[in-house]
Computed example of a mutant assay.
Amino acid sequence: MRIDGRAAIAALLLVASPSFVFAQEAGRLTGLKLDGDKPIQIESDHLEVRENDGIAIFTGNVSVVQGPTLLRSGKMTVHYNTEGGSATTGSADIDRLEVEGKVYVKSETQVATGDSGSFDMRSEVLVLSGREVVLTEGDNVVVGCKLTVQMSTGLATLDGCAGQQGSSGRVKMLLKPGSQDR
C-alpha cells in the first residue's frame, strides 16, 4: 500500500504527539510539534483494506517509524474519505486515524503511553487517552487520563482521571529542578 504525503503526515500526527515541552502556561502543556517531511514506515502482522467502507486496518504488533519517532500499538485503523481516491492504494484523503491496544510513542527524548489514540484530520485534534496517560521527558513526568492537542496551535490539555476507582482524579506532574537545562 502506497502512503501519500498527506497520509504519512496524518499517521505521523499520532506518532509525533509526545513532542511536548513541560511548560506551565495557565495550567496547560504547550509545545507539540510535527515533523512530516521524512519518509514513514508502517509494519504490522496483518493489513485489511475495506475499500467500500473506506478503511484500512493494521493489526498485530503495529509499528510506525518516521525518523527518530516510533509508535507501537496493537491496532491502527485509518478512515478514508470515500469520495475520490482509493484506500487500497493509499491515494484517498484520510478522515481520521485511531490506534488502540497499549499505545506507546517515543520521539527522541519524549515518551507517551496510553490505551488508545485518535486524530481527526478536519479539526486537527489529537487525543490520547486511557486508564493512565503518561508523558515523560527525561526526569519530568506528567500523568492524567486524556491528552487533547490542537495541532494547528500546539495547545495541549491534560485531563485528570475523575471518576476512576482508586484515582484522586487530578493531573499529576513531577518536575525536576534544572531539567530544562539538560
Rank of each mutant, 00 (worst) to 15 (best):
E108K: 11
G117Q: 07
F119G: 01
E132V: 09
R170D: 04
Q150M: 12
T136N: 07
L147M: 13
G101Y: 08
V127E: 03
Q164R: 08
V143P: 01
G90Q: 01
L126H: 06
D120K: 04
D115R: 10
T153E: 01
D159Q: 15
S116G: 14
T89K: 06
N140C: 13
G166N: 06
L155G: 03
I94M: 00
G138S: 10
G160E: 01
D115Q: 07
K106N: 12
V142W: 03
T109V: 13
M121P: 00
V111R: 06
Q150T: 14
T113R: 07
V141C: 06
T109G: 07
T153D: 01
R170H: 08
G90M: 00
V171R: 13
S123F: 01
V111G: 02
K102H: 15
V103I: 09
V133W: 03
M121A: 11
C161T: 03
Q164F: 11
A112P: 00
S123D: 07
S107E: 04
C145T: 06
V171E: 07
V111Y: 02
G101P: 08
Y104P: 02
D93A: 12
V105Q: 00
Q165R: 05
D120P: 02
C161K: 06
R122V: 09
N140Q: 08
E98W: 13
K102V: 14
C145L: 06
E98G: 09
S167K: 15
A92T: 02
E100V: 15
Q150D: 14
V142N: 07
T113S: 05
F119L: 04
Y104H: 09
G169E: 08
A92V: 05
V141K: 11
V125I: 06
R131V: 14
G160K: 08
D115W: 04
E98Y: 12
S118L: 13
V127S: 02
G163F: 09
S152Y: 14
T113Q: 03
K106V: 11
G144M: 01
R170E: 08
L128V: 11
T153V: 04
G163Q: 14
T153S: 05
L135D: 00
S91M: 12
G169P: 08
F119V: 03
G169T: 09
T157S: 12
R170S: 07
L135R: 00
R96E: 01
G101Q: 11
D93R: 10
G144A: 05
E108W: 04
G169M: 09
V133S: 10
A156F: 01
V149H: 06
E132M: 09
R131P: 11
A112H: 01
Q150S: 15
G90I: 00
S118R: 11
Q150I: 12
V133Q: 06
E100C: 13
L128K: 05
G114W: 05
L97G: 01
G144C: 03
G138A: 07
E137N: 11
E100A: 15
V111M: 08
Y104L: 10
T157F: 10
G130T: 10
V134N: 06
